[in-house]
Design a binder for these strands. Structure first.
Lengths: 171, 171
DNA sequence: TATTGTTATACTCTATAACTATA
DNA sequence: TATAGTTATAGAGTATAACAATA
């Protein structure tokens, strides 16, 4: 942490949370604060991925899923993990395949399915992106106190569970 | 909170955070957890706004900004608050104006500018949406413990400050 | 010269639905 | 009947850039 008194500046900059008035409830403010953080960080990430690596967040996410699964993943698995519908996975996979970053392999036991894997080129490209991505995340979060990071991680774990339990997934 | 042991189920469902392996750093996991929560909630909100109110999140956000500013707002102010570029505000405003939910008024002192306001119809429509939106947020967050909500609010306040200080805004 | 707002463009993402081929 | 994946469609959001009018 630095020396700036946090609460002093906290409402200095306009954002989505600014839209709440005093009459609003605390849960709504919490959600808007969450949304503001995410939007700020996410749009910065999108810009970086586009400008520095010529790619997009969904493409990066798909490659990240595959990086973790060296044995490959089925389209439907990707769909579940990325929380988007099937047809969209087809589209993103098409792009990546055209650029030689992933391959589709037919699976013998179920002729409807295919297994998607990163190619060596895809793995190299992903590593480069992931490294700079993580370095940037590290840098950003290094300005947040240990205490806050721990608290967020715990609390968001609970929220995530609630959300995953109660919200209808798409697909 | 309910009786389910939170950590037991926490990694049961696939999501964006699932992509991290043990070698990844804690800050990256924190970010992915944050992103997962936001994505889950946000996509549910988008679906509800579309299905129940025939609108979208950016349109809702723009109206929410105006609701708080009865005196109206300039396009450029909206652009700053909503963290998107000028041209996009024009597009969203066009839609809302066509439906009679907002009006553009020319300002005498600066003939380049206009002031956007909610119409009475827009105010009514917004109130209806905002009420059901808030009720839904209340319901969701009521399943998160007080302790976690407080912790999140504080910690996200710090993160928001860091993000707003360090990330380049668009516009 | 800089700012306000508009217009035009091009692209990605998204949900939805109809379709096929398998199971 | 249900599932895996594809295709087609239509719409929204976004950044970018060029532009006019005004400051």
């Amino acid at each position: 942490m630095n020396d700036i008194p946090a609460n002093a500046m906290l409402n200095a900059m306009p954002d989505l949370e600014t839209r709440t008035g005093p009459e609003d409830h605390q849960n709504l403010r919490l959600w808007l604060r969450l949304l503001t953080c995410c939007t700020l960080i996410e749009s910065d990430i999108r810009t970086r991925l586009r400008q520095e690596h010529g790619t997009t967040l969904p493409r990066f996410d798909l490659m990240a899923q595959l990086e973790r699964a060296p044995q490959g993943m089925k389209m439907s698995e990707l769909s579940r993990h990325m929380m988007v519908t099937n047809g969209n996975i087809t589209g993103i996979t098409d792009q990546l395949e055209k650029e030689g970053l992933v391959v589709r392999n037919k699976v013998a036991t179920d002729r409807r399915s295919s297994i998607i894997k990163l190619t060596p080129k895809g793995r190299r490209a992903f590593k480069k992106m992931a490294d700079s991505h993580e370095a940037w995340i590290q840098e950003l979060f290094s300005h947040v106190s240990d205490k806050s990071r721990k608290a967020m991680f715990e609390a968001l774990g609970e929220l995530k569970l609630v959300a995953q339990t109660r919200l209808t997934p798409r697909g």
